[in-house]
Amino acid sequence: MLDNRPLKMCRRRFLASVAALPALTGGAFAHTMPHSLPWSPFAGDPPKPINPLGWYFLTPSEVITVEAIVDRLIPADHLSPGGKDAGCAVFIDRQLAGSFGKSSHLYNKGPFLPGLPTQGYQGELTPSGRYRIGLKALEDHVRAANAGKSFAELTGEQQDAILSGLEEGKITLKLAPGFSTRQFFELLLQNTMEGFFADPLYGGNKDMASWKMIGFPGARYDYRDYVEKYNQPYPHGPVSIMSGAPGWNVKG
């Protein structure tokens, strides 16, 4: 709706508009953006490498079990070291002690309702809580079925049979409501793979072993010189975020 009445200039309106002028033009100066873009020296937000010593979440007996599990999920062979030597248990321990283990990045309050199978675990337990319950239930099951022997004391074949049983639903552990044995196995497998392939600064993938195995070049970001060299292997070894590559250091 436009007001079609002619705008009449009267004394009051004139004074008011003159008064508004300095306010309006002053405002324009006040909002002029400074030319320079924000920048500060030494800017950077590098990830914090883990402390390689000690254990932060797992108990000594849990460490033994987890190390045995990761070494069966990724056994040492001519392609790479095993999950234990690659540091997967260290990776899992640091993750469980950190924000992942506490679910601090997720909504973690009720109501807890059963979800679809594709939605994964929907209950109240954090990943660290699921590890604590799962590892205890696994040990209880193994000791009951193997005359008091722990998981780590079994032979490789026996351990494989148990892990397959967890994966295929042949073994049912006494876990919490809404937390299935298969979900526990998948959590273990997922975190073991993450530890094996993540940057070494998080505790696993020692000496970039998995990257060397699959030929992944690591934290690089420019391949222009090689992108048209078809059917030729990329000639450079992997680079990690914090410790770079062995060739960066002069020996001796």
Partner: peptide
């Protein structure tokens, strides 16, 4: 104003 990042943390 192109900028060069700091490498103090990496090298």
């Amino acid at each position: 104003q192109p900028a060069m990042p700091s490498f103090a943390w990496r090298l």
